[in-house]
Amino acid sequence: MTSVEVKAGAAGGSPDRSLRIQGLRKEYVRGTPVLRDVSIDFAGKGMTAIIGPSGTGKSTLIRCVNRLVEPTAGKILFQGQDLAALRGAALRAARRRIGMVFQEYNLVERLTAIENVLCGRLGYVSAWRAWLRRYPQEDIDGAFELLEAVGLADRAGQRADALSGGQRQRIGIARALMQRPDLLLADEPTSSLDPKTSVEIMELMVELAGKRDIPIVVNIHNVELAKRFAQRIVGMTGGSVVFDGRPDELRDEHLKAIYGGEAWL
């Protein structure tokens, strides 16, 4: 277990962080695919935003990557492995390298901020140590550093249910980065937040992941935020990719194709 950690640390984040999705298909109900054989390559750096209407499979796509959702068919290639084919211990080991930020933060409400951040190390510490809260000192230092970085150092001992939405999402980001991941997934990270906090959260993610050279794949409703922060935009509709390009290439006709109609533009 530690060998993986050491390797990643020694290499200074240089292992290949690109992600290749090939022919990914997901059917919750047989015969009605939510994802229709989607193929996308994500570069190993920067932010890629996936936009599209609700129910179009963005969340499913992201969740297939760390297998919170089981893909029906297709390949998800990451660091020489097909994530879609992993099981058991190998799957858990792969998940450790992939951080995730959630729309509703998904913090453990009754744990404190620092405990939530340290949850990011649960793939590495034994149940015994987690139970006694005897995390390695290195992890504890790292957790405090991350709390500092997200601006919540003074809230370390506060329970998550006592924090505001923006503060919770900051903890959520710290938890994901605590994994020292090679990839950061974000599933509608700003949809439950007000516009100002949304921008702050996006800035924070870009800044902290950028410093660590971690590529981000983010699902996002807000096209403006996507254009502002992402280097690449993928537009999906009906379970297929209909646009893939730089933010400045995204025109109204593309938005029409993605969301349908034009009255809202």
């Binding site: 919170l68 858990r92 998940r95 995730m100 453990v108 649960l122 793939g123 149940a127 938890r175 994994q179």
Partner: peptide
């Protein structure tokens, strides 16, 4: 969320 960290 905890499962997604690779926790046992």
């Amino acid at each position: 969320a905890v499962r997604a960290t690779g926790a046992s």
